[in-house]
Design a protein around this nucleic acid. Structure first.
Length: 613
DNA sequence: GCCGTTTTCGGCCCGACTGTTTTCAGTCG
């Protein structure tokens, strides 16, 4: 029960309107972040700066549109107090925030952009602006060459060289790698280092361990004896993809990788992280491993919450362990479980460590039992050579069986997907026969269902007539075109599709591509309500380019009582491995196996499919 | 600016690394 309350609270669900990504929330989040930046350069109270940063973060993650939230609910949101609520309401009323405009007028935007240069913080930027008269990155580049900056206090040769070197990364700031890329890279680094005899334990931490859809930098944690640290650091910075050593110390090193390091294993060009990625390596003694893993996994906000709790209990928490405040006696440090327990908390799964109420739930031992990868027993969205896949029906079915699935649905594209060789009505009819033939052949090994990923046309009609859809076991209805439709229009479009009596799953509902395409912003609350009433499932498309529904949507979906489907949308070998990213996304949403149709037994799934008709 | 089973004022997490420093400030996560 408490869990559901938390869901409601975290999402701000109070009968309000739920949108994919509220324009108001996004714009205000951006404005508050800019205000925080300007305040920082102006040397404002740092807690005030933090308050603006937090408000920006909270608004960016909020699933409900602040424009339709009532005043009381707004003020109940963690991180939004009277001041922020007043600003939000003023912005909603007038469409602007005079205070923000005034603030931005005090510091040139080019000066604020200097904060994006790694190593340049508010203090340094303030000096460059006020004392050296630099107004933007171009000014900075020129000043670095003339040598005039050496006259400034605190500016030595090395510092100037570093700024010069880091200037190019200002443009890369904020660019993040998709989780699929980051995971491959992290595993590559771990593979290289785990063979060293000094390494007792190694794993990735940070936002990758938390399963975020994009990752800013890789965090690796190693357990080793103090005497062995030097050798490990040397090996780390000497690895082939490393092009720059940012820091190298006794317990911590940071490097940057090259643009096309073989480690990335990325087959698709473009995307978010055009350049390399920063990798941080932290080495601690095995006795501190648990505390260090917590520290390094974050999130920062979650850690702050735990440290505050430690203080209130007369203890101190850092990466070395949980200690008594007065005596420095170590209370817990070896494992995460021990540290959480000593704090009076249940162990919190990494995916929930975002300071969204999980500590309060852990305090009551009321955390949800999150879905696991091994809970998935069926794949309901796949493509074969009939449309744009690389597998034959049988190859695909056998691959699914090999993974221990009891059911797989073949769902090739519909005729509107010309570029993907979508099936005409006639071809689909023949395809169904072919699928049934394979199903018969593999009977006993795996259940093979005939399906289709049918396009939701721009007006909400489906790409096949009902008479044909009726013949299918699974109908995944997805948008592939008109992905810039107005929210109201696409909401109506999707509601109409959900009404179709033969739809079983709504596939990748926003059509976004992580870091590349924004996708649609339908009224998700309305879709979830309709889907729940119809009894159909909403998909978490597990492909790391999509992750659609995203985590916040999935959370809102289960709160609304909607069943979820986690599918890979597999087009060929290897794609079934994408399932892990869908499961991570679901876990971040607090999803349990009972929320997901792919976790049902064979009979249970068959019964559910029937129930959607 | 936010927040509160030590509450409406007085706090607000903690440590590593770097560079320019003779003991520390700035930045980062």
């Amino acid at each position: 029960m408490l869990w559901l309350l938390w869901l409601g609270f975290a999402l701000g669900i109070s009968g309000g309107k739920l949108v994919a990504m509220s324009q108001t929330n996004t714009r205000l989040s951006r404005i508050f972040q800019q205000m925080a930046d300007v305040l920082e350069v102006l040397g404002a109270n740092r807690f005030k700066v933090i308050a603006f940063q937090k408000a920006a973060r909270v608004l960016g993650e909020l699933a409900e549109d602040v424009a339709v939230m009532d005043s009381k609910t707004l003020r109940a949101v963690d991180g939004i107090g009277k001041g922020m609520a007043d600003r939000i309401e003023a912005f909603v009323q007038t469409g602007e925030l005079a205070e923000a405009a005034e603030l931005m007028g005090k510091v040139p935007s080019g000066v604020v952009m200097m904060l994006d240069v790694p190593g340049l913080g508010p203090k340094t930027v303030s000096v460059l602006w006020r004392e050296a008269g630099l107004n933007d990155l171009d000014d900075l580049a020129k000043a670095l060459d003339t040598g005039e900056l050496e006259k400034l206090a605190g500016f030595g040769k090395k510092k100037i060289e570093n700024i010069k070197k880091n200037l190019v990364f200002a443009k890369e700031a904020g660019k993040r790698a998709r989780i699929g890329e980051a995971m491959a890279m992290a595993l590559w680094f771990i593979d290289q280092l785990k063979g060293l005899k000094q390494v007792k334990r190694i794993e990735y931490a940070g936002s990758l361990r938390r399963g975020k859809e994009t990752i800013g930098d890789l965090d690796l944690l190693v357990a080793a004896d103090a005497d062995d640290v030097g050798g490990i650091m040397d090996a780390f910075v000497g690895l082939e993809p490393v092009v720059d050593v940012i820091a190298k110390g006794k317990t911590k090193s940071s490097v940057r990788t090259g643009e096309s390091s073989g480690a990335a294993g990325s087959s698709k060009g473009g995307g978010i992280s055009g350049g390399g990625i920063q990798v941080d390596l932290r080495v601690v003694p095995i006795e501190s491993y648990g505390a260090a893993l917590m520290y390094f996994t974050g999130s920062k906000e979650h850690n702050v919450r735990l440290r505050e709790r430690a203080i209130s209990m007369g203890m101190k928490l850092n990466e070395w362990g949980l200690t008594k405040q007065d005596s420095d006696e170590v209370v817990a440090s070896g494992s995460e479980e021990e540290v959480f327990e000593a704090l009076g908390l249940a162990w919190v799964p990494p995916e929930l460590r975002e300071d969204r109420g999980e500590v309060a739930l852990a305090d009551k031992d009321d955390l949800p039992l999150l879905i696991e990868l091994s809970d998935i027993k069926a794949e309901l969205h796949t493509h074969t050579t009939a449309s744009d896949g690389m597998w034959t029906i049988e190859q695909l079915a056998l691959a699914a069986a090999e993974r221990g699935f009891h059911t797989v649905a073949i769902t090739d594209h519909s005729k509107g997907q010309v570029q993907a060789n979508g099936l005409s009505d006639e071809r689909l009819e023949k395809h169904i026969v072919a699928v049934r033939r394979v199903a018969e052949k593999l009977r006993g090994k795996i259940t093979v269902l005939a399906g289709s990923e049918v396009d939701i046309l721009t007006d909400g009609r489906l790409d096949y007539p009902d008479s044909l859809l009726k013949e299918l076991d699974v109908v995944v209805a997805s948008p592939h075109a008109a992905l810039t439709q107005e929210p109201a229009k696409c909401t109506a479009r999707f509601l109409k599709a959900i009404e179709n009596p033969y739809v079983t799953i709504m596939g990748h509902p926003t059509g976004r591509l992580v870091g590349r395409r924004e996708g649609l912003s339908p009224d998700m609350g309305a879709l979830f309500k309709a889907a729940a009433e119809r009894g159909i499932a909403m998909e978490i498309n597990a492909n790391h380019w999509r992750l659609d529904l995203r985590d916040t949507h999935a959370r809102a979906a289960i709160a609304a009582g909607v069943k979820l489907a986690i599918n890979t949308d597999a087009h060929g070998p290897g794609d079934l491995d994408q399932l892990q990213f869908g499961v991570l996304t679901a876990r971040r949403a607090g999803v349990t196996k009972s929320d997901v149709v792919n976790c049902m037994t064979k009979a249970g799934l068959a019964k559910w499919l029937k129930s959607t008709r």
